[in-house]
């Protein structure tokens, strides 16, 4: 049983619909809502926030002429990109070439279906929620491979191969680290993982610190965040795109709408990474005073800010070093963490 009613049920309840019809309508409306929330966030992040943040790190101002704080850039950028000519290079492998830009953002959006965003915003709460989120997130790399081989461009191909290598090397530590949380929580269900973290850990001078797993096991949190950076392909692990090495990596050949989709996908992916991290380690939407959804938003934006910070300040690893860290470092550490957690939980319980 989930602790709260999931969003579709709430909606169909509100509309007074029941049975199959209620399920369908509620599901559609809910999905529409959640997808739009995320798209709006990415719209802010992509053309505007990213520029502003990078500029702030580099002592610049960035967009400020168009609309207040340059906010209208979001509109102009989006419309302009959508209205550009869509170039289909000769020799691309259709339909893979056309499908890939859809696979990338939609897989990431799919992941949000099981994320509890606070205030009852959660599309579904299956028992295997966490596994679903990971599964959905890693479909994106399938999309990247598709872009890579279908583009008929060597830089794209190299980028795609790098993305696959990265995905394999870092997905395992990511999941294993998440598994240690699951051992703590005793469930894969997202809402339960969140609920477990609501209990107080200790009280210091009247302030109660909850059992967020980031506090319980900071080591696992660090591992998870690092693996997550690699998973979403940001510095120092941004080797699939690697602008100075392989032009624009897997997205080199994409223009116009397809480019927008890929770009969107990247950002939604970052947010999904942040959302999973928040759910697993930071108590999901929990937080004092403000409503849950606001906290949830703050947390995933914090992760986004972190990725941009890393992008501005940390050099990129070389691909072999990157894999070495993945296979020799992260993997071993995450297993150690898992075993340790298992022992501790076993002893205590």
């Amino acid at each position: 049983m989930s602790l709260q009613a999931v969003l579709p049920d709430t909606i169909s309840g509100l509309l007074g619909l029941e049975g199959v019809l209620g399920d369908v309508v509620g599901g559609l409306v809910g999905a529409f809502l959640v997808a739009n929330i995320m798209l709006i966030m990415t719209a802010f992040a992509g053309p505007w926030a990213k520029r502003k943040i990078t500029a702030a790190f580099g002592d610049r101002i960035a967009v400020n002429r168009i609309g207040p704080f340059g906010l209208l850039t979001i509109v102009t950028d989006a419309v302009r990109l959508l209205s550009k000519e869509l170039i289909v290079p000769e020799g691309v492998d259709r339909p893979a070439w056309d499908l890939a830009p859809m696979v990338i953002p939609f897989s990431a959006l799919l992941g949000f279906a099981v994320i509890p965003m606070g205030n009852g915003i959660q599309l579904a709460d299956p028992e295997t929620g966490l596994a679903f989120a990971f599964a959905a997130a890693s479909i994106a790399s399938l999309g990247i491979v598709m872009t890579g081989y279908a583009s008929n461009n060597k830089f794209s191909l190299i980028g795609a191969l790098r993305a696959v290598a990265a995905n394999i090397a870092y997905e395992i530590p990511l999941v294993i680290t998440a598994a240690s949380v699951v051992i703590f929580a005793g469930s894969l269900r997202m809402s339960e993982i969140v609920a477990v973290q609501a209990e107080p850990l200790l009280s210091v001078a009247g302030v109660t610190i909850p059992t967020w797993f980031a506090f319980v096991n900071p080591f696992a949190f660090a591992l998870f965040v690092i693996a997550n950076l690699a998973e979403v392909g940001r510095n120092p692990f941004d080797i699939p795109e690697a602008p100075t090495e392989i032009v624009a990596g897997y997205q080199t050949e994409y223009s116009s709408v397809y480019f927008v989709l890929i770009y969107l996908g990247e950002f939604i992916h970052i947010f999904l990474g942040g959302a999973i991290a928040a759910t697993l380690f930071l108590g999901g939407p929990a937080g004092p005073v403000l409503p849950g959804f606001v906290w949830f938003t703050i947390k995933i934006w914090a992760f986004f800010l972190f990725t941009q910070w890393a992008r501005s300040a940390v050099p990129r690893l070389r691909v072999d070093q990157f894999l070495e860290i993945g296979w020799k470092g992260m993997l071993v550490l995450s297993f150690a963490n898992l075993v340790l957690t298992a022992i501790i939980v076993g002893v205590i319980a």
Binding site: R80, T244, E253, F259
Partner: peptide
């Protein structure tokens, strides 16, 4: 593009490496 002159103020300062994405 850089500090001081900062072309991006005019929303024209994002250099893209691939010609497919440039205006």
């Amino acid at each position: 593009y850089a500090i001081k002159h900062d072309l991006d103020r005019f929303a024209a300062g994002v250099p893209r490496a691939s010609p497919r994405q440039a205006d």
